[in-house]
Write a protein that binds this DNA or RNA. Sequence first.
DNA 1: GTCATTTGACCCGT
DNA 2: ACGGGTCAAATGAC
Length: 310
Amino acid sequence: MEKKSSSEEWEKMKKEINELMIEGRDYAHQFGSASSQETREHLAKKILESYHKSLTILNYSGEPDQDSLGEGSPNSDDSDLEPRIVKSSKKSMPRWTEKVRITPEAGVDRSLDDGFSWRKYGQKDILGAKFPRGYYRCTHRKSQGCEATKQVQRSDQDPILFEISYRGIHSCSQAANVGSTIRVQNLEPNQNQNQEVLENVKESLDTDHRNYNHQSHLHQTLHYPLPSTPILESNHAYMLQMRDHNNEFFGTTSMSSDLGTNVSCDFLASRDVGSASHSTSNSPSTVRLESPFESFDPNYPFGGFGEFYS
DNA sequence: GTCATTTGACCCGT
DNA sequence: ACGGGTCAAATGAC
């Protein structure tokens, strides 16, 4: 009954997000032709704003039903399209899901690396899923009591797509350094790098737009390429702000980290996911695709996968 | 020796 | 009772 109104509300939000993303894409295009540093800074800020607004909307609504987003996760029982706030049944820990697709350019490591260190504590075959699900928790759980955990599930349909479910916010010191979005190693304010990053953003936005009609791509877009973006210092504060805001949505992990990474905490498997090379040696920044990858088709054109195996 | 991963057993919610 | 999530002993890598 109330379903309909929820549905309409979600449609409305989608539309808003769509507009924001298009706006961001346009700014990214302009960035490409901008000559002055000042203009670039301004555009970079605008791009970030678009992302921020989109995230705010998403954050407010909770995550769009993953199942409705296609890429069928094995655990999708309901087919409702309405968005819903996944408030963990487990206590009141925030929970959100991200879909990460491995890209040839980034490789598995980067694609899945969210900047956090994760330790795998279990793996399980899930009913109806071809690949086992990996369970990870923050490496600093013992030392700092960080309760963040994540689950990595490789998609049945798309072997290069991983669904990462995060639970809890990182309370460890790493959260402050990584944020959910910024890849520490990329913070070096190098202009070339900066431009490269924005180019990626641009590319990302284009891609998003292309897939716009597919909700399923919304998540992918959320792979903020920006995170790793060192962008200008003037924007750094903004990024951090965004990061904090996003922690609620992405958790600490995420994306390429964080807004940038990933799923910042490395997703895949923890090793994966969190890996981003961090302290514990555990996760070498690479998420080892673990078993899910063992059955990985070697024919996949992603050289990066090799890294997982090594 | 230390720490991460593996994996079967156990716990808990539905 | 079933399935998902976690624990913890065994094992492996560094």
